[in-house]
């Protein structure tokens, strides 16, 4: 394996082609819909019951002009109970609750990181077996990262309206700390960098390649 700049340029071209194919599949094919459905099902599975009495519903965003594909609707059992009690006290038969809603673009909060990691791994100078192991190593980590990011986002939103939902954190300092932390991880750039770090960690931990890379690098 040659590690001269021309070798890496060739790898960059391979990476670009693979990534463009994935983008084409996502934007022109069914990719975004598949990712949206997968994200919705996984998010619903893990977070439809949040904390003690939080309820989260992940719906499709019907506004086609919008950049977002999912709408997250947050309520809580306490909120519903309080609304019913209040309505009963006023002698009303019906009442309405105001859930907290925010939209999500599942491609930029999840799909893009997977696409980037897959393209990196396919383009990397590794054997097919090492690439398969890399997928088995990296994809679950990215999956956990995406879920963790969503968990932080939901926890923060519940905590900000703790008096209304009775869900999430009550400690203001802790909420502020989570807010700062979320400000770091919320941008797609962080997710891409995380994917890159997972890839590099795997690439360098691959003993055989590690020795090879650095020995060849030293001889370049």
């Amino acid at each position: 394996m040659n590690l001269s700049p021309s070798f890496w340029m060739k790898r960059l071209i391979i990476f670009s082609l693979i990534f463009l194919c994935i983008l084409f599949w996502a934007y022109a094919g069914a990719g975004k819909i598949i990712i949206s459905n997968f994200y919705q099902s996984q998010a619903s599975y893990w977070f439809s019951n949040f904390g003690n009495n939080g309820e989260v519903n992940f719906k499709k965003d019907k506004n086609k002009a919008s950049d977002y594909d999912l709408m997250v609707v947050m309520t809580s059992k306490t909120q519903k109970k309080n609304a019913i009690d209040e309505a009963r006290a006023l002698g009303k038969q019906e009442t309405q609750i105001a859930p907290l809603q925010f939209p999500i673009n599942s491609w930029s909060v999840a799909g893009l990181f997977f696409a980037f990691f897959i393209a990196l791994l396919i383009a990397a100078p590794l054997s097919i077996k090492a690439k398969l192991v890399g997928f088995a190593f990296g994809l679950p980590i990215l999956y956990l990262f995406v879920l963790f990011k969503l968990w932080v986002s939901l926890l923060l939103k519940f905590s900000r309206f703790n008096s209304k939902f009775q869900v999430g954190l009550e400690n203001v300092n802790l909420v502020n700390w989570f807010d700062s932390f979320y400000n770091i991880i919320k941008y797609p750039y962080f997710g891409l960098m995380f994917s890159l770090i997972v890839f590099l960690a795997y690439f360098f931990t691959n003993q055989e390649k590690k020795k090879d890379v650095f020995n060849k690098m030293a001889n370049t």
Partner: peptide
């Protein structure tokens, strides 16, 4: 597409390439 997918990825990859060029130059 260009804003959220192409350029962000390209920027990270080109940062990595710049690093490889530096390592190669240094050696």
């Amino acid at each position: 597409v260009m804003h959220e997918s192409v350029w962000q990825v390209l920027f990270i990859v080109l940062s990595l390439m710049a690093l490889l060029v530096f390592i190669s130059w240094d050696r």
